[in-house]
């Protein structure tokens, strides 16, 4: 029961925050609404028993990404461009398209009966145990490529279940590459001559 109340509370905060981001014209307020919304998402993660993920969400998103965005706001919000307003027509058009999209999504999802879908499960892979909190250790092992939570056996042989060693490693390469790129772009440029394009490199 408590969980229900908490869910409705945070769900309202998530949706409200997201709507706030859309509706607000002021970029600083948008950042505030975004923090609210994403923070509440992390609360929902906790409710779903994904404690590590919830923490990561708070740390990386609220603590990292959004702060990055706020930096961006501060660096770019100067002078007359502080408020760049969306015209009413654009807003209306966006609302229409968004409404249609929402209709499509909800009409598909709401008809689903997930429990019925998965009781018919007869695939070789066993239903994994559903994470109910305390996911730090299984997640860590999964990143190393080990899945004790999801043993797959064929006869007497033990086969490795999908482990995530490769993406875990390769994503670090990705981060490296991306940060190099971001640093390059954000570095002070040498040809500070935006009005005069020269094609010769």
């Amino acid at each position: 029961m408590t969980a229900d109340v908490l869910f409705w509370l945070f769900a309202a905060l998530v949706c409200g925050g997201a709507l706030g981001v859309v509706v607000t014209q002021n970029i600083v307020r948008m950042a505030f609404w975004l923090i609210l919304s994403l923070g509440s998402v992390s609360a929902l993660f906790f409710l779903l028993g994904a404690d590590f993920l919830g923490a990561a969400q708070l740390l990386i998103y609220v603590g990292g990404t959004v702060v990055l965005l706020v930096f961006g706001v501060m660096l770019t919000a100067s002078g007359p461009y502080m408020q760049i307003k969306t015209s009413a027509a654009d807003g209306l058009l966006g609302a229409c398209v968004g409404g249609l999209l929402f209709l499509v999504l909800v009409s598909s999802i709401s008809g689903m009966d997930w429990s019925q879908l998965h009781t018919t499960n007869t695939t070789p892979s066993v239903i994994a145990e559903r994470p109910e909190g305390n996911t730090l250790r299984p997640l860590g092992l999964a990143f190393l490529g080990l899945r004790p939570d999801r043993p797959v056996t064929e006869g007497s042989e033990v086969k490795p279940a999908p482990g995530y060693l490769l993406p875990f490693e390769i994503v670090s390469v990705h981060l490296l590459v991306v940060l190099v790129g971001a640093a390059y772009l954000a570095r002070a440029k040498r040809r500070a001559n935006p009005s005069n394009d020269s094609l010769s490199a």
Binding site: I170, V177, V178, G181, Y184, A192, N193, D197, S198, A201
Partner: peptide, 17 residues
């Protein structure tokens, strides 16, 4: 992984509008 570095490469001549 294929896209994000490409974004940066597209803007590689960063002095150009």
């Amino acid at each position: 992984m294929a896209s994000v570095p490409s974004y940066a490469m597209a803007g590689f001549l960063k002095g150009r509008k």
